[in-house]
Simulated assay, not measured.
Amino acid sequence: MTGNQTAEGPKHKKDLTRRKVVVAGAGAAVAVGVGGAVAAGAFAGEKSGKAATASASSTATGAEVCYQLTSETTEGPYYIDADKIRQDITEDKEGIPLTLTLKVIDSETCKPIANAAVDIWHCDALGIYSGYESLSTGGGGTAPTDAPSGTPTGTPTGEPPSGAPSGGTGGGGHEEPTDDERYLRGTWRTDKQGRVTFKTVFPGWYRGRCVHIHTKVHVDGEWTDAGYEGGHACHTGQFFFDEESVLASAEVELYSTSTTERTTLSEDTIYDQSGTTGGLLKLKYDKKNIAEGVLGTITMGVAPDETNDGT
């Protein structure tokens, strides 16, 4: 794949004035079982393609569309271009199983975008990024005196080291990998319905950022035996987790060992507080035992003719 691997700063408040929109989120999802098994039909209750277009035309006219453009964000410093073509990105990393089902649609036509290449990458349960372990600050090693709460005792101050994931903005220029690890990274193709599913673990957190997953959507390229080639990135964004789920994860072994102060969703400098449009995932899990696994779903409305590479 191709793409500019620099990021000058957050661009999470994309101008949407040229489109009048009706927001729609991901559809009904069934509960996930032990190990975060893929839940078939997670979007069964969601309209797509002609059905969605017909629904929109009955209530909208002119420039109105079915979905709002999903917010663009900075790429961040730790993107590695199309390094692993796979759906299961877990490798040997421990953590709460997470099955992430994404749907990519054209925000103007509401039609699913098939054969797009979707990247996701995120830190592990202790805030470490593969490929950049020496630059990741993460947190952990000894049990904290108190578990992370919904209201941190203070907001981190001062400027973080250049390029470190502890950066409060999540921006900064692209960093070259410092190691050969590639866990919790992967790229896969959307199907005819615009859907793609990844198996991973619930991310942890690091200083200055709330819990999140990075993503890119590439279109107009070609799938070959070597992977995905050419095309352009039409969307660069992040997925976010509500406070209830993060607080529940913080009680689970490994996450509970983190000694890093956590930034809440409302304090994050990248998340634009717009809910699903801003990348907030819809989550399903056993509220009494999140350790069994989590199912996350979201529909991304993108503009396939535009280039949004996170710079």
Rank of each mutant, 00 (worst) to 15 (best):
S256L: 02
F198C: 14
C123K: 11
T17C: 10
D146R: 13
V23L: 11
E94C: 05
E244Q: 10
V34N: 02
K111F: 12
P148M: 06
Y67W: 12
T137L: 13
T307E: 10
G296C: 08
E108V: 11
G301R: 08
Y132W: 02
I105S: 07
V38N: 15
R207N: 10
D220M: 02
A116G: 04
Q68L: 03
T157L: 12
E176Y: 07
K14H: 12
G171Y: 06
E267W: 07
W121G: 04
A26M: 06
E176T: 12
A52E: 10
T263Q: 04
E46I: 04
G237A: 08
D119W: 01
D119Y: 03
V34L: 14
A42K: 10
C110P: 08
F240L: 03
Y271V: 02
E253I: 05
T178I: 00
G140V: 07
V219E: 01
G163Y: 03
A114T: 04
A26D: 14
E46P: 06
K50R: 14
P160F: 05
G172S: 03
S258N: 05
Q5Y: 12
F241S: 09
G27K: 03
Y255R: 07
F239E: 00
V252D: 03
Y228M: 04
G76V: 10
K216V: 01
V196T: 08
E292L: 14
A250W: 00
L254A: 10
D81T: 04
G158T: 08
K84I: 10
E244T: 06
Y78S: 05
Y255Q: 10
S107E: 10
V219Q: 06
K20P: 11
G150T: 09
G171H: 08
G139K: 06
G170Y: 01
E181Y: 14
A143F: 14
Y78A: 00
E175Y: 14
L281P: 06
T53P: 03
Q87Y: 13
V22H: 02
Y67V: 01
T145C: 09
T277P: 05
T73D: 00
D92K: 13
V65R: 11
L98T: 04
L254H: 13
E251Y: 05
G204K: 00
Y255M: 02
T145A: 09
G27I: 01
E159S: 14
V21N: 07
V104T: 07
A7K: 04
G167K: 04
Y255N: 06
G168W: 07
I298Y: 14
I96S: 05
E75T: 15
P148A: 07
T257G: 08
W205T: 09
A54C: 12
T263V: 12
W188R: 02
P148Q: 11
E159W: 12
D242A: 05
K13F: 08
L102T: 04
V252S: 09
T17H: 13
H122Y: 03
T151F: 11
V219H: 01
I105W: 03
E253Q: 14
V246Y: 01
H235F: 12
I113V: 11
G275Y: 11
